[in-house]
């Protein structure tokens, strides 16, 4: 089956077409631009370019997979809004996956793994995995020093680049969720044709908002 994968949970604007077979997934085309301010501008053009490069059209797709976070809010919503609208207009299912799972799915090592991405405000999003890529903890957001590695022996994700001193485990690729990683993270649901989970954003933080105090006095 032909799956469109997209992700905007990191500084990368990612779209690609992946062919999912009974025993594996092959990338047919992908377009990635690393620019944290360009998610809203570039995602749909990237989708169209990768579909075109894969020799198909949006009508030729069987499903969409979208990273649902955790990620900085504004960029993250560009991906989810795009995926939801494509699914609705094309009448195909949209599967949300945890972006950290997508990084773990393609990590270049068969061992326990920690995945960290930048959460800004001096914090990281993170999750810990066993050697079979089962998530042991997370997704969570915390200061780098407060991350519980669960004894992981390797680390992946671009959080390592942002906080090189905080994560001293051997680092492995990838830095960002790839289209193939996203599809692998949803492979079981895609193959079984399961009903997709609701397409909701994983924020892990409440909006910054304070209830107002009494209006300020204007008289001296």
């Amino acid at each position: 089956m032909l799956v469109l994968a997209l992700d905007t949970s990191t500084p990368a604007v990612t779209a690609g077409v992946v062919e999912l077979g009974p025993d594996g997934a092959t990338t047919r085309a992908e377009r990635v631009t690393v620019d944290p301010r360009a998610h809203g501008e570039l995602l749909t053009p990237h989708v169209l370019e990768s579909v075109d490069q894969a020799g198909t059209t949006l009508r030729g797709l069987d499903a969409v997979v979208c990273g649902s976070g955790p990620g900085p809010f504004t960029g993250l919503r560009a991906g989810l809004a795009t995926a939801a609208s494509l699914g609705q207009a094309l009448e195909i299912p949209v599967y949300p996956v945890c972006g950290l799972d997508a990084i773990a799915a393609e990590a270049a090592v068969d061992d326990t793994l920690l995945v960290v991405t930048d959460a800004r405000r001096r914090e990281v999003y993170w999750a810990a995995y066993d050697a079979n890529r089962q998530r042991l903890a997370g997704p969570a957001v915390s200061l780098p020093v407060d991350v519980d590695t669960h004894g992981a022996r390797h680390v992946a994700g671009h959080g390592v680049q942002v906080y090189p001193d905080a994560f001293t485990l051997p680092a492995v690729e990838p830095l960002y969720p790839s289209p193939r990683g996203l599809v692998l993270a949803a492979a079981a649901e895609l193959r079984s044709g399961a009903e997709p989970a609701p397409l909701t954003a994983v924020y892990l933080r409440r909006p910054d908002a304070q209830e107002p105090h009494r209006p300020k006095r204007v008289l001296a």
Partner: peptide
């Protein structure tokens, strides 16, 4: 951004 992203996707798909 939410409306713009959604609208681009609807336009591309339709």
């Amino acid at each position: 951004l939410v409306g713009v992203a959604a609208a681009k996707a609807y336009a591309a798909a339709l």
